[in-house]
Design a protein around this nucleic acid. Structure first.
Lengths: 143, 143
DNA sequence: GATTAAAAAGACCTAATTTGTCCTGTTTAT
DNA sequence: ATAAACAGGACAAATTAGGTCTTTTTAATC
């Protein structure tokens, strides 16, 4: 029940890009240095994000990454799903028939509600939102 | 980002007990058989739940388990926390100072919001609610 | 008191997943 | 050509989840 490091790194990387001049091409090595994320690992993550169209990669000398589309059109949900596949909070929401065969599953509707609320937030939050939060004064999360 | 089997088993076990005559003492072996949960594993889980007061255990011959309090006063949140410790959706909500030292963490407030909504559901749902859902017609989760 | 049934407790094991590294391509600007 | 940069696969290490086993404690019953 925790957000993975992969997801966290991905979001930090995207936020970093969102705060660069648009269309600027940035090196993985630069991001990894600034954000203290293992370079090879971040490279792997970025691969997946660009396959999903969330990043645009430019190969060869002077290559690098930039956002695949404007930061306000990349949602957290897309990021999560690009990395971990469709969101499924519990086994029985993932594998059809996992629990329906046997008896009625009392947990099923709750998992659904939980997941729904979760996705609501993820879907309603863009990389731009995240990038802006960082600027807006030094408000701390919860102290 | 998934509910663990431990949590699922715990809830299924509790729901099972909630559907027994109150104060009836039930064997782990019975629950594990009915619910198809590995017995030794369920026993472990029940240990933790009874330390947390969510179950009452009776040792020795004729022993077993019953709910530690009425099913409508055991929330899913309590169950989750009894098993996995305080809910912390992301590292930086768990370990104080994990992200605050460095720069302002743009993800922090979002993790908080996500977690808040999550806990809202968990806190508002009791074992009784779950048990009742099971009775109430054969409505399927989502098909 | 001995026997037996049951949970408590903790050590232990295994498998899966996450996190990360490394090496060998491939692409492309210079 | 060459060097810079991403692409992709194989592999390694660390962590966590899931599960088993053994011993100890407790209580009822013979």
């Amino acid at each position: 029940m925790q957000i993975t490091r992969t997801e966290e790194y991905a979001l930090r990387g995207l936020v970093f890009l969102a705060r660069q001049p648009p269309e600027k091409v940035t090196l993985v090595s630069e991001i990894s240095k600034e954000q203290k994320i293992p370079e090879a690992f971040l490279a792997k993550i970025f691969q997946r994000l660009s396959k999903a169209g969330l990043l645009r990669s430019i190969r060869g000398a002077n290559g690098g990454f930039s956002l695949g589309r404007p930061a306000n059109r990349i949602t957290m949900k897309e990021v999560m799903e690009a990395l971990e596949g469709p969101i499924g909070l519990s086994r029985c929401l993932v594998r059809e028939g996992e629990c329906e065969e046997e008896a009625v599953c009392p947990l099923h509707p709750i998992w659904e509600e939980l997941q729904h609320r979760f996705v609501e937030v993820l879907d309603g939050t863009t990389v731009e939102d995240l990038a802006k939060r960082m600027v807006r004064d030094g408000r701390r999360g919860r102290g």
